[in-house]
Design a protein around this nucleic acid. Structure first.
Length: 647
RNA sequence: GCGCCUGUAGCUCAGUUGGAUAGAGCGUCUGGCUACGAACCAGAAGGCCGGGUGUUCGAGUCACCCCAGGCGCACCA
């Protein structure tokens, strides 16, 4: 609601300034330093000072005198050296919130694709993957809340070297037949088994460099699709994808479609992209130097500082395409520019009826249409920004400037491990590493915190608290509540840092449920609902807010600074979403949720709602409780966090 | 060597596109449960915003130069 008032005030000032001064400048609205200065502040007099050659304070005075009445504004005050502070009309504001509390954002045109998760299907997911998925999933929820149509893609590299390495492990080290691997793949936590095997294979390569031939052989077999190695590769990748989907499901993360590398290969996506790139001279066949015999993209295409040496190889001298090449083809497909399409079959349907589709080479019936986006967000580790630049440059070189501009590398920093957590995991650190503030995880070394282990640990910790507090509740219910607290804690933990902050993962911090955490926010929602529940338990009913809380009643009650501040804070949900989408920073919403929860806890403590005897005040307290609860739950929903029924 | 990112309270981090007296959480210290159940609340202490020079009415925020750290710069993905 707040941003509607903001927009209205902005328009009123913009048109006034246009008429009065012929000034066509954006009217910036700020939040005043202190809340007792009002709800909004305009620094516009400063912006005009130079142009009009008058002191800001005089200009501000002119504006305040000239503009007259603005709807929704109770008072304009000049402060400091020339600020115009705005006080909203509290009665009108309260009434407006009461009458039109929730209205969904207007639908926006176009279709946004968000690609996230993208874990190699050869081992269990770890906390780094979780940051990617939680960030991506939350951004999807934010876009949808802002009215966008969004398609969620999770790219599966089922034919790459990482899968090949695990195949080598089963085939050569373990001497397993495809049937035996198939049997193992059906057992619980197959992804954990592969996690260890992958680490073993990696260290085996270290000691036996000649084993690299196995990897190459497996890779080729997988690409061709023949023989035991290929069969094992399929079994492993498919089973691990299932594991990842299950892990992510625990955190309420789902997908629309899983495009796979095997189909990019077999449907000859790359061949088509290759033709386009050659035809438009986006790449050329290098005849000399270190890249002789390769098709390369000139460095100048993706970097201003680049010289000849910085060209990027797209097709190797042996004729095979690099990852970047395939990614260009995939990116073209996302925008509907490739002239080719996947076929799909339904992989699974979630409890809520939503179906995930996976790419396939065979035509099938009933599959929806995917791709053809107007805007694409690729949620990828910031360490890959160089490669992402090359992909976008590929589009630009092909003349797809608009699509290149709509391709966003949604980058985030890595999740590393704190030295303390390494010690807890029993990892020995070199002297050099132990001096660092964090240690990088490594799938090859098997160094990392597995997602499912972490979730289990969080549930266990939460369950202890729940059991202690609600021993009388049914066990199933307690488990459900503990699960919701655990995912709330985890998602919030991964979201509260802005994207370009390296997270030095620490068990102690991640397992904390106090202070700036998910459970703190959930607890505020639970408290609010408890009040409403207690009211009913005691035979009470909610008053008819519409008739009791007239504009005059609102005016009287909201004169209280505490009530007014909570109402304003709770009504800023929309502004918070807009800001987070515009800046691409889900952390802003996490922060908003925390601040809102803080404001409520404060209110909760200071005003016993049910004990209030003055009917009008009691109505306001109840209404505020209900409104806060709705707004906070909406905010939590966008963060992918549930409010448990009790805590 | 080149490019990108980071440096804010003891620790971990915010800082709304350049605005008023720089904010949270944790930790420390003090106080508050016969309650809408304390996973909470109130209060205190804690700062040369890495350093320097500029830009302007105004800089944690922008520019340039240093210092310190991180990450990239494959015919791997």
């Amino acid at each position: 609601m707040f941003h509607l008032f903001e927009n209205r005030i902005q328009r009123a000032f913009a048109s006034f300034l246009q008429i009065r001064y012929g000034a066509d400048l954006p009217v910036l609205l700020e939040q005043p330093r202190q809340s007792d200065f009002g709800e909004l502040a305009l620094p516009v007099a400063f912006q005009l000072a130079k142009q009009l050659k008058k002191p800001p304070k005089a200009i501000a005075a002119g504006i305040v005198e000239g503009i007259g009445a603005v709807e929704g504004v109770a008072a304009l005050e000049i402060a400091g050296n020339g600020y115009i502070n705005i006080r909203l009309d509290r009665g009108l504001y309260g009434r407006t919130v009461l009458e039109q509390s929730s209205q969904p954002a207007a639908p926006k045109p176009g279709k946004v694709i968000v690609e996230h998760t993208n874990i190699n299907p050869n081992k269990a997911a770890h906390i780094g993957h979780l940051r990617n998925a939680v960030l991506g999933d939350t951004f999807v929820r934010l876009l949808r809340a802002a009215g966008h149509t969004v398609e969620v893609q999770n790219y599966i590299d089922n034919t790459g070297v990482q899968v090949a390495d695990v195949v080598v492990g089963f085939h050569h080290l373990e001497k397993k037949s495809p049937a035996e691997v198939e049997h193992l793949a059906g057992s619980a936590r197959f992804d954990f088994l592969c996690w260890d095997l992958y680490a073993r294979v990696s260290s085996y390569y270290q000691e036996h460099p000649e084993a690299a031939a196995w990897r190459l052989e497996a890779l080729h077999a997988i690409e061709q699709g023949h023989g035991d190695a290929a069969e094992i590769g399929h079994i492993v990748a498919d089973a691990i994808v299932e594991c990842h989907l299950a892990t992510m499901r625990r955190l309420e993360i789902t997908y629309d479609v899983l495009p796979r590398e095997s189909e990019i290969l077999h449907l000859r996506f790359w061949a088509t992209a290759f033709e386009q790139l050659k035809q438009r001279n986006a790449i050329y066949l290098e005849s000399e130097g270190k890249n002789a015999g390769c098709w390369v993209m000139p460095g100048a295409a993706f970097s201003q500082e680049a010289d000849e040496e910085d060209s990027k190889v797209i097709v190797r001298s042996n004729g095979t395409v690099t990852y970047v090449g395939k990614d260009i083809a995939y990116q073209l497909w996302k925008f509907g520019l490739l002239g080719k399409d996947f076929y799909y079959h339904a992989l699974k349907t979630y409890e809520d009826g939503h179906t995930v589709w996976v790419s396939t080479v065979e035509p099938s019936e009933g599959a929806p249409s995917f791709g053809r986006a107007t805007e694409v967000y690729n949620v990828i580790d910031s360490r890959q920004s160089y490669l992402q630049d090359v992909v976008v440059a590929g589009l630009r070189q092909l003349g797809y400037t608009a699509q290149a501009d709509q391709s966003v590398h949604f980058a985030y920093e890595m999740v590393a491990l704190s030295p303390r957590t390494c010690a807890e995991l029993g990892v020995e650190l070199s002297d050099e590493d132990s001096k660092r503030p964090y240690v990088e995880v490594s799938g090859r070394k098997g160094l990392g915190v597995k997602a499912d282990d972490l979730i289990d640990k969080l549930i266990e910790t939460a369950a202890k608290e729940v059991d202690a507090r609600h021993p009388e509740a049914p066990i199933d219910e307690r488990r459900q509540v503990a699960g919701q607290i655990a995912t709330g804690a985890l998602r919030y933990f991964l979201l509260k840092y802005t994207r370009n902050t390296v997270i030095a993962f620490d068990f102690q911090e991640a397992l904390s449920f106090e202070g700036d955490t998910g459970p703190y926010v959930q607890y505020a929602a639970v408290r609010a609902r408890n009040i409403l529940r207690k009211l009913k338990e005691r035979g009470g009913e909610l008053p008819d807010f519409e008739s009791v809380l007239t504009r005059e009643a609102m005016e009287r009650q909201l004169a209280s600074e505490d009530f007014w501040q909570l109402l304003v804070a709770a009504s800023k949900y929309g502004s918070s979403i807009e800001r987070a989408v515009a800046s691409g920073e889900p952390a802003h919403v996490a922060r908003y949720a925390f601040q809102l929860a803080q404001a409520f806890n404060n209110f909760y403590h200071a005003y016993p709602v049910l004990a209030e005897e003055n009917p009008e005040k009691r109505a306001l307290l109840l209404w505020m409780t209900q409104y806060f609860c709705a707004q906070l739950e909406e905010t939590l929903r966008v963060l992918g966090i549930r409010a448990p029924r009790y805590m």
